[in-house]
Design a protein around this nucleic acid. Sequence first.
DNA 1: GTTCATGTGTCATACCTACTACACATTTGC
DNA 2: GCAAATGTGTAGTAGGTATGACACATGAAC
Lengths: 117, 117
Amino acid sequence: MNSFGSYLRRQREALRLKDRAYSVRQVAKRVGIEPAYLSKIERDEVPPPSEEAIGRIAEVLGEDRDALLALGGKVSSDLLELIRRHPVAFAELIRGLRDAPTDALLRVVREVRDGDW
Amino acid sequence: MNSFGSYLRRQREALRLKDRAYSVRQVAKRVGIEPAYLSKIERDEVPPPSEEAIGRIAEVLGEDRDALLALGGKVSSDLLELIRRHPVAFAELIRGLRDAPTDALLRVVREVRDGDW
DNA sequence: GTTCATGTGTCATACCTACTACACATTTGC
DNA sequence: GCAAATGTGTAGTAGGTATGACACATGAAC
């Protein structure tokens, strides 16, 4: 339904309606992977590619990198590194937000964004 | 200096002073891995083991699971899953705390812990 | 109506990851 | 002083990750 591949295919096809430069082959070239590989990715014949490849796909298709990574079952390595610097604190923070409704989560995000220390 | 392996070795040896059941062999048995493998792990001859193995090592040695995983370059998969449910929000939250001093981070953690929604 | 682009099938590969199994020399306990 | 426990060297493996290369049939464009 909303697998990584089928989502990609839908988005690419949508872009293609406006601009036929969004073929499998041309997108693959811009991304820097083989067309056959992208084709397989879009049909979920292979697992989502590496973080780097997903990042470049996000760029080429104008998608949010973190969101696309999540759809591919991954989390950006820069976030992982930040978490690893304060593993216990971040673990409690994230688990503490497990059952928080989305708006409560966003409130915390906003608060941190505007926070002055 | 503080690689995963050397840290493990230090902690295990410390426990061993009080209780000689903390030999490489006996710990490995309780953890459920081969002694030779644990030996190599402690000498950093191989990369840190799987998340599951690190979790069991943490249990056996009385270490914090998230902290030990971090030392092993990993992040608990339950946290990853939570992040993947709200990738954009969590990305902004975590990156927003990148330069926050530890006490500011802990303040947010506490706030979330005590938060009622 | 041929040329060019397109999507995809098949095959192959290199490099990790995550270990197990066994043997051996040294040390320790009684 | 001998048996048992200990730490470690060597070798091997099963499965996953992340692709590349090439060929082929179909379709569209001019």
